[in-house]
Amino acid sequence: MNAMPPAPALSIQGLSHSFGPQGVLDDVTFSLPVGRVGCLIGPSGCGKSTLLSMIGGLSEPTHGTIAHAFRHPVFVFQDPCLLPWRDARDNVAFGLKAQGVGRNERRCRAARLMEVVGLAPDDVGKYPHELSGGMRQRVALARALAIEPDLLLLDEPFSALDLGLRRQMQALVRRLIDQRNLTAVLVTHDLAEAVRLADCVFVLSGKPARLTARHDIARPFAERDDGFVHSEVNRLLSDPATARALAVEDMGHGGGQ
């Protein structure tokens, strides 16, 4: 039993998509088991975000199928997308309100989640413009967790944050994923981030984009230190397909990490 790979919770078969005459995705096929973090990586504009929004059911692919058993997928975007006219707590409770949870209960749960994502009790009544970028992203994360999702769709949620803050948030997100046994798909263009967080890395490239490489990262998250991330990034880049796909990005990011 233990030797059997876990059943795929998310499986994508022969997916193609185009906007009008412009092909965006071409014959993408992959699957992801429950409780794992998959990462879609590729150059900017290669269709990663489009794929993610199709997984979340916000749009339909032109061809192919997406099958999954998740009941509550949830997005976290690069921009926190908070409502400026609601305070932090009501922003966290936004998804709960959409589900019809009563006012007192959702406020109570929102306050608890704000603590979980590391916001101070003082921040409860603050409006988004009174919060820093990192705090806003924490509110957005708490809002996503509030609806008790089973699938977390992360669309470059850390790329607007500075380096120290980004590392903190990465650790927080991965810890929450493991604690709550969530499945997650992360979209990024930063290989180091992918290596740090993901269990499977899917490399997309070309126009229209195809899945050009796939890597598994076996080591548990807790044991991934800077040295490991560094050597793993180098290992992945030694694969010619991956290196080609990320060539442009690599100059900007790979060296700095």
Binding site: G56, L58, F77, C81, L83, F94, K97, A98, I147
Partner: peptide
């Protein structure tokens, strides 16, 4: 962006208008 976010949270119509 806010509209996209509201759609992602499957916000019902009246709440979309009100909130």
């Amino acid at each position: 962006d806010l509209r996209r976010m509201a759609r992602a949270f499957r916000v019902p119509g009246p709440m979309l208008v009100w909130d």
